[in-house]
Structure formats: structure tokens, C-alpha cells
Amino acid sequence: MALLEIDGVSKSFGGVAANVDISFAVTEGEILGLIGPNGAGKTSLFNAIAGEVTPDAGEIRLDGAPISGLGPVACAERGIARTFQVVRSFDSMTVLENVMVGAFSRAGHAPVAMRAAQETLEFCGLANRAGRFAWQLSPPEKRRLEVARALATQPKLLLLDEMLTGLTPTEAQEGVQLVRAVRDRGITVIMVEHVMEIVLPLVSRAVVLNLGRVLTIGAPAEIVKNPDVIRAYLGDRYAAA
């Protein structure tokens, strides 16, 4: 069953078309990769799904109900959570307090939010950092903190924006395990990455964007063989070979 449907979404910023007539559906419980070279329109589409920008045309539906144009707060309430490409942490707060901000979106009272936040930190492997300030964390820990904060809102759909980019291979593997564990909890995941070799083993399907349009959608094995994808990433010379 489709959890999220993207139906003919277009968005331009000034004269630049970031997304042109994008349509695809995300199945409940899958990990979907959203890949493409720089400037393909991945983050812009992400922002549209998260409610941060309103598409110029088209519709985005969650569980069949339209969500485009409702804004980020309403999208969060309906069960969409996200992380950011450039990490955004609440630096004057401790790690536990950061996650409590997310937990308060479902919990009315502090003790409930605190318990939920503590559990989420344990799930994300950050329990031993609970009392540190967010700014004291290492970059990979900050990425995990963003995931924990997003998970604390008890989402149906988690959007990960380049969560594995810039990590060492070991750190990236730990990130991959975390994403799998999130999916095993029944949360649908869309991840934006431009490093294909990290994301392809992880996802069930991938949507490849190029110049704002959908280039192809398919299983990882099909994607890597697709000449259009190779051309978009590496240029015409490699596509012929």
C-alpha cells in the first residue's frame, strides 16, 4: 500500500526549475533511495514532502490525504519527520533535551517526553551522551542525534537528507545499521544520497533524479545498469563503454 504519493509535483525558484512533473509512490515499510547528481532537485523535493516549501503544481498525499502546502508543523503532526543535510542541533540544550523537543510533539507532560526521549537515545546508541550539550558531539554523533530527534516524534515516514555523506566507511556502516533498525520498527524511510555505493545496497528501490526530472525508478541492480543513469553521473563517454 502506498504511504506517500507524489503526483506531478513541480517547483521553480525564480527562473530555475528545481522539480518538474515528479511522480512516484512510496510503499509502506520500504527504504526508498532518492539519488542523483548535485543540483538534481533531491533536497528541494524533500522540502516539499516535509512541508517546508509548497509545490507550484501537483499534489503530495500521505495515507491518501493531501499534505502539500500545509507547512512543516502540520506535516510533522501527520507523521513526517526529517533530518537536515547541514546538521541543525539545539546547541544550548543537552542531547536528551534535544530529543525531548521531538518527543513533546506526542507527549503532553515532561516525564512522558523524558522517558520516550531516553528510549529513543538508547535505540540510536546515544544513551551515554544524554547529558552532553549538543555542540559537544562529534559529527557522526550529531547525525545520530538528528535521527533520534526525528524518531521521537513517532513518525510514519522518516526523511534522511545525506545522513551518510562525509562519514568514514566504519561510521557509514553504523549509520546503515541504524537505518535498517528504523525500517524494522515499521517506519518507512526515504533517503537522499549522492554516493550510490552506500545507498544502493540499503534500499529496496531508488528514484533517480536528474535536472529536476525523474530519470528512472527501479531496483538497485537495474539502476546501476541503466545507461541514462551512467550518463547522468559520469558523462556520455562512460555510457557508451
Binding site: A81, R88, S89, F90, M93, S105, A152
Partner: peptide
């Protein structure tokens, strides 16, 4: 105070 964009993504 710390980050408005992150805050509203969490439903604030």
C-alpha cells in the same frame, strides 16, 4: 531560539 527550521520540523 536555537534553530527555528529544526524546531518547526519537529512540530513546534
Amino acid at each position: 531560539k536555537d534553530d527555528m527550521v529544526a524546531a518547526r520540523s519537529l512540530g513546534v
